[in-house]
Simulated scan of single mutants.
Amino acid sequence: MFYTLPMSEHDPLPIDTNRRRARGAQSNHSGRFERLVREETHDGWDGPEDRAAFRTFVTTERPRSAITRNTSPDVPFDRSVNPYRGCEHGCIYCFARPSHAYLGFSPGLDFETRLIARPGIAKVLEQELRARRYRPAPMAFGTNTDPYQPVEKTHEITRNCLKVLRDFNHPVAIVTKGTLIERDLDILSDMAAKGLAHVGISVTTLDAGLSRAMEPRVPPPARRLATISALAQAGVPVRVMMAPVVPALTDHEIEGLLTAARDAGATAASWIMLRLPREVSPLFQDWLQAHRPDRAARVMARLREMHGGQDYSPDWGKRMRGEGHHAQMIAHRFRLAMRRLGLSEALPPLRRDLFAPPLACGDQLALF
C-alpha cells in the first residue's frame, strides 16, 4: 500500500536491515526537489509482510554530450567524463549523492541501487574530440561516480571511452576504488608508456571491517593495495588517495596507510577531508549512530570545528581540507609522512602534444 505526504509532514520510518544488506545508506528519503513523497506502509490486514531487498536496477540514457567542464580552483582538471549516474559501491560519505536528487531519485538507497548507464557516451566523446576548436588537456574519470563500479563489468562503457582516448593519443587521469581497472591494463599500460595516463586509487582505511561498513560494495583495502601493485608493475604511474579522511575515525591511520601504499608501488599521495554537502550530512550521521555510536559526537564535533560550526562549508579553498588547528595538524602529518616515505604530491604531468584525431570512416589519406 502506498500514500503520499507533503515533505514538511514526512517522518520516514527506518528500513529493515535485511532489506538493505550490503548497502551504505540507512534510509531512502525523497530528494530535495520533490514536493511529495511516496511511502510504503502495511495495510493492517495481516502480519508483517515480507519485503523485497533493495536490488540494483540499471537503466540507460542516451547522452547528448560527453565532456563535462568545470572551473573549480579546488581541482586540477577542467574536463571529465561520467559513464554512470549513481554508484553501486554505496560509500556512505560520497559527496556525489546529492546529484541523484536532480533525477528525481533519493540520495540515499536510490543512489546506490537505481543506476543510469550511458552506453553511447564513447561515440559522443569521439565526436567532441574531433571538433576543430577542441584543444587537449587531461580527461578525468571518477570525479563524480566510480567508472569501475561493479556494473562496468558487463557494460564496459569506461573501457570503450578509454579506447577512444587511446586512438586519439589523449591524456587521461582516472580515480577509482574498483579493482576492475586491472582489466584495462592492456590499454592503460600502452598509454602510460607514452606519458598519457595515470591513476589514483582511493584507500580510506586499512581496517577491512570499517571499510565494509562505510563502503559496502568496494573491494577490501588489501585488494586495492594489490591493484596499486598491478598498475605500478604495468608501468602506470599511480598515487594513493586517502579520500576522505574521517576525523576521529580514520585519521590515526595516515602514516600506516601511506606506508602500505608506498610499499605496494604508489609514488604519490593526496588526501581530502570528509565533506558532508546537503543530504550527505544526515545520511552520514545516521550511519555513525548505527555503526560507530561511540564515535558519532566526536566525529561531528571535529567536522564542525573545521567548518565554522557547520556540518560543511562549500567555500573555495576550504571545502576540501577544512580549517583550524585540527585540519592543520592532519595536513602537517601528511606532509611529514610523505617526505619520510619519498612520496610526491603529484604524478608527472601528462603529455598533450601527441594528440591527433585518427582517420574517420570516409576520410581521405594525406598525400604527403
Rank of each mutant, 00 (worst) to 15 (best):
residue 1 M to H: 11
residue 2 F to I: 12
residue 13 L to M: 12
residue 13 L to I: 08
residue 17 T to R: 14
residue 18 N to T: 15
residue 19 R to E: 10
residue 36 L to N: 05
residue 36 L to A: 03
residue 39 E to D: 04
residue 40 E to V: 10
residue 51 R to L: 15
residue 53 A to M: 05
residue 57 F to C: 03
residue 63 P to A: 01
residue 80 S to E: 14
residue 89 H to A: 02
residue 90 G to R: 04
residue 90 G to C: 09
residue 91 C to L: 09
residue 91 C to H: 09
residue 92 I to Y: 04
residue 105 F to T: 04
residue 106 S to F: 04
residue 108 G to V: 14
residue 111 F to A: 14
residue 114 R to D: 00
residue 122 A to R: 04
residue 122 A to S: 12
residue 129 L to M: 04
residue 130 R to K: 14
residue 145 T to Q: 01
residue 148 Y to I: 06
residue 149 Q to Y: 06
residue 150 P to N: 06
residue 152 E to S: 11
residue 152 E to N: 13
residue 153 K to V: 13
residue 156 E to R: 15
residue 159 R to E: 11
residue 161 C to E: 06
residue 171 P to S: 12
residue 184 D to R: 13
residue 185 L to E: 01
residue 191 M to H: 05
residue 192 A to C: 08
residue 198 H to I: 03
residue 199 V to K: 03
residue 201 I to F: 01
residue 203 V to E: 02
residue 204 T to G: 13
residue 204 T to N: 11
residue 208 A to Q: 09
residue 214 M to F: 03
residue 214 M to Y: 05
residue 217 R to I: 08
residue 217 R to E: 07
residue 222 A to I: 00
residue 222 A to P: 00
residue 225 L to F: 11
residue 232 A to N: 10
residue 236 V to R: 01
residue 237 P to Y: 03
residue 237 P to C: 06
residue 238 V to A: 09
residue 245 V to C: 04
residue 246 V to Q: 02
residue 247 P to S: 09
residue 248 A to T: 01
residue 249 L to S: 06
residue 259 T to K: 14
residue 282 P to L: 01
residue 287 W to F: 13
residue 290 A to S: 12
residue 291 H to R: 11
residue 294 D to N: 14
residue 296 A to D: 11
residue 302 R to S: 13
residue 303 L to W: 10
residue 311 D to W: 07
residue 323 E to L: 03
residue 324 G to S: 09
residue 327 A to Y: 10
residue 333 R to P: 05
residue 333 R to F: 05
residue 337 A to P: 11
residue 337 A to N: 09
residue 337 A to G: 09
residue 338 M to L: 05
residue 339 R to K: 15
residue 339 R to W: 10
residue 341 L to E: 08
residue 341 L to G: 06
residue 344 S to Y: 01
residue 345 E to S: 08
residue 348 P to C: 01
residue 349 P to F: 01
residue 350 L to S: 12
residue 352 R to I: 13
residue 354 L to S: 06
residue 356 A to F: 07
residue 361 C to D: 14
